[in-house]
Design a protein around this nucleic acid. Structure first.
Lengths: 140, 140
DNA sequence: TGTATAATTGAAAAAGATTTTCAAAAAGGA
DNA sequence: TCCTTTTTGAAAATCTTTTTCAATTATACA
């Protein structure tokens, strides 16, 4: 279960396990779409009523630093987070419900290097993201 | 020349040509890397000393609305702008000097549709961006 | 070439998002 | 349980972006 593994990782890096952190971790780990700090706060506050928004910011920062979550860039904003994928993966995000799914990079690296090479660039990193509709949302 | 074409476009959409707008347009059109509003302001103020930051925000908004510039997403922030590419293109950004170059999408659409289909998604849009070093910066 | 008028401007204020400060509370080792 | 250090939430501070508003300016028209 992602939640316990994240809590263990926080602890093994010297961070203490608190109710506030558990609530934030549970919220981000179980939500299938990217949430911004305010959304995490509102959701996590349900299970930890004393939670403050500041603690959400601080916890997200630690989770990102441990590569447990990752910031997601969308046309509407770039401050939402998702659990990090295993290895290097790319994202498809549903424009209807926000659901996000990772997919493998396949062998695009060679293609990227070739294209970049034409312009004299050496590629270090790449971002690939698809936007569309998931099966549920394309029904309507 | 991009500058004149942008000014003409602004005018043909009912916007007046002012010194403030000319300074902003010139700055964005001639800079080979993505600039954020503050950077545009500092640069454009050199040729229009009375310029205010607010006007930079308002002008960038209009240029984006006319699809003359486009917002660029980078790890360090998502509020910088570049001239818009002809047709659908992708970006390579130099991590050293910030220089940005567009490249054509080739035939990736079919691949994207196939990958997305595996997860039940219909693709509407995609983002692809490469980060690396340009020929100048990879020398050092 | 003036003049009227509607758009545009910059400053200041407001709004939003994020970060810092700080005293009180809580976690976890002894 | 006690002690030390971390963590917390509230408030204040900071930064970015937007709104408000009176003064200025571009442009159509006489």
């Amino acid at each position: 279960m992602t939640v316990n593994s994240w809590l263990t990782q926080l602890q093994s890096h010297g961070y203490r396990l608190t109710n506030a952190r558990k609530a934030v971790v549970e919220t981000v780990a179980r939500t299938p779409s990217a949430l911004n700090p305010l959304e995490v706060y509102q959701q996590a506050k349900l299970s930890c009523p004393s939670l403050g928004l500041v603690t959400v910011y601080r916890t997200l920062e630690k989770l990102e630093e441990l590569h447990l979550i990752q910031r997601v860039h969308q046309p509407g904003g770039c401050n939402a987070y998702l659990p990090h994928a295993q290895g290097h993966q790319h994202l498809i995000i549903c424009q209807g419900c926000g659901k996000a799914v990772y997919f493998e990079g396949e062998n695009m690296q060679a293609f990227f290097e070739q294209v970049a090479g034409k312009h004299g660039f050496t590629v270090k990193e790449h971002w690939l993201q698809l936007f569309g509709l998931c099966s549920e949302c394309s029904k309507n």
